[in-house]
């Protein structure tokens, strides 16, 4: 099965395992096209969705994946105020352990929290985003969507555009794409590019038009409106003129560039509606592939042989 018991991040994650997840995910895409979109693969498996911060999209995608696999699920949402106490995290973890849960899908604002969780519990841990660290399932669904569109990942030129510094999507995409043989360029305001990020082997270029000339696909990140008018960004109109994926800008490049967005979008800021809804966007495929790839991840990870040898 997969090399690692947990899915915490894509840094140093084996490329053969990423490929296995994507291949399995395409099989689940077929299940999702059936009139009855349900298979009994994870019957009897109990999964808790542990969300320490709000992320409706990711949670719904995981929940749907779990239902399609016939797993039993429990949702647990904790308020961020309870996070201030370190004990509550440990207590929650130990409660999960006591309840004999097979797998935990966790979203947490703190980098490293999923790794921390593995120190308290035996269950499989799947990282559904840990702060600005990793969000491996998002990167896998992005890669699956790229493979669906281009038929391969090796050799692709992918640009990640926007606020890289505060993104939970960028790092996992960088690690994953690079291990699958794609090239990655980061494009955004220079003060929203993490320092030393070139050490990860990516190129940084803040000229969006040059980057679009180069790229096969753009992964456009959400820009938080609250960052506008701060020390980081002066205004929406300036951001839009420098980094917005507008219809005109896309038309100026006489080539097919695939447009992706992890959602939720700020239409009219980082991406125009006409682009988001246009023929070059695969944003809705990403949503569907999100369910399929999370099914594949749950299926492959929760199928690990129990230690006592009895299923």
């Amino acid at each position: 099965m997969l090399t690692h018991k947990h899915l915490l991040g894509l840094e140093n994650y084996p490329s053969k395992d990423i490929q296995a997840i994507i291949d399995t995910a395409f099989q689940f895409r077929e299940v999702l096209d059936r009139p009855i979109k349900k298979v009994p693969s994870l019957q009897g498996v109990t999964i808790v969705n542990l969300f320490f911060e709000n992320s409706t999209r990711t949670r719904i995608s995981f929940e749907l994946a779990q239902k399609r696999l016939s797993a039993d699920t429990v949702n647990f949402s904790a308020s961020s105020s309870s996070l201030k106490k370190g004990e509550s995290f440990k207590d929650t973890a130990q409660n999960i352990e006591a309840m004999k849960i097979d797998a935990v899908v966790m979203r947490h604002p703190a980098p490293g929290a999923p790794l921390h969780l593995t120190q308290f519990i035996d269950a499989v841990v799947i990282n559904a985003g840990d702060g600005t660290h990793e969000h491996p399932t998002q990167a896998i669904l992005d890669m699956m969507s790229l493979q669906e569109k281009f038929g391969k990942l090796a050799g692709l030129k992918i640009a990640i555009v926007g606020d890289i510094l505060h993104s939970r999507v960028a790092l996992s995409n960088i690690h994953g794409l690079q291990s699958m043989g794609a090239e990655v360029t980061l494009c955004g305001p220079t003060n929203l590019i993490p320092s030393f990020v070139e050490d990860l082997g990516v190129t940084v270029n803040s000229n969006l038009d040059e980057v679009m000339e180069w790229a096969d696909a753009l992964n456009v990140l959400r820009i938080q409106r609250e960052r506008m008018g701060s020390a980081l960004l002066p205004s929406v109109r300036e951001y839009r003129s420098l980094f917005g994926i507008t219809e005109e800008r896309l038309a100026n490049h006489k080539k097919e560039i695939v447009i992706m967005h992890p959602g939720p979008m700020n239409r009219g800021v980082e991406i125009d509606s006409q682009v988001a809804d246009g023929g070059q966007a695969i944003i809705l495929d990403q949503v569907l592939n999100g369910v399929a790839s999370r099914m594949a991840i749950l299926y492959l990870l929760c199928g690990e042989k129990p230690e006592d040898g009895n299923a």
Partner: peptide, 21 residues
């Protein structure tokens, strides 16, 4: 392809060979 429907899935250690339905 009955791979996703097998109830003995958790007893196996090898990567499933999925051919598709």
């Amino acid at each position: 392809d009955i791979t996703f429907h097998r109830d003995d899935f958790r007893e196996r250690l090898v990567m499933p060979q999925i051919k598709g339905t």
